[in-house]
């Protein structure tokens, strides 16, 4: 579980990317490195129902509830996309449902992600965020109906 708040983690990421400066090549290499370090998803989660629509490369996303917090696992067939996912997981996984639902993910704009990954990728990233929020909302609704 994450002890840091969403915004603390976002600020950390912004600082890390600031070290890379505005050199796109180093930034993309860094994202790819993050991607290749991401733990691969177990095969049982790499199923069509976990695929996110709107992503050009394949993205599988699995969201579970542990102690009222959202735990995210994800994978992709391309390392750059995996790198993007790893950032989202770092920021959002282990956070409370309300914090995920209400998160203002300002780090994406701050690190100039749009310029780095282009417009098609950016749409894919937006789809991933939307899907994560939908999972959080679905779990919240489920919890409320149980109480």
């Amino acid at each position: 579980m994450s002890d840091q708040s969403i915004n603390e983690i976002q600020d950390e990421i912004i600082d890390e990317f600031a070290i890379l400066g505005d050199d796109k090549e180093s930034t993309v290499f860094y994202i790819m490195e993050l991607g290749s370090n991401l733990e691969p998803l177990e095969d049982r989660y790499r199923i069509d129902s976990n695929l996110i629509k709107g992503c050009q490369s394949k993205v599988w996303l699995e969201a579970e509830l542990e102690d009222d917090r959202l735990v995210l696992k994800a994978d992709s067939n391309t390392d750059i996309t995996k790198g993007l996912i790893s950032l989202l997981i770092r920021v959002l996984s282990g956070q409370s449902l309300d914090n995920v639902i209400n998160a203002d993910l300002y780090f994406i704009e701050k690190i100039g992600m749009h310029n780095v990954i282009g417009s098609q990728r950016s749409n894919g990233l937006a789809s991933m965020i939307k899907q994560i929020r939908l999972y959080a909302i679905a779990y919240k609704t489920k919890l409320q109906s149980q109480s």
Binding site: E25, V28, G35, N77, T78
Partner: peptide, 14 residues
Amino acid sequence: DVHPFDIGMMLDAG
């Protein structure tokens, strides 16, 4: 073990 898309993106960045 390297997806063509990753190669294309990284080459473009350079």
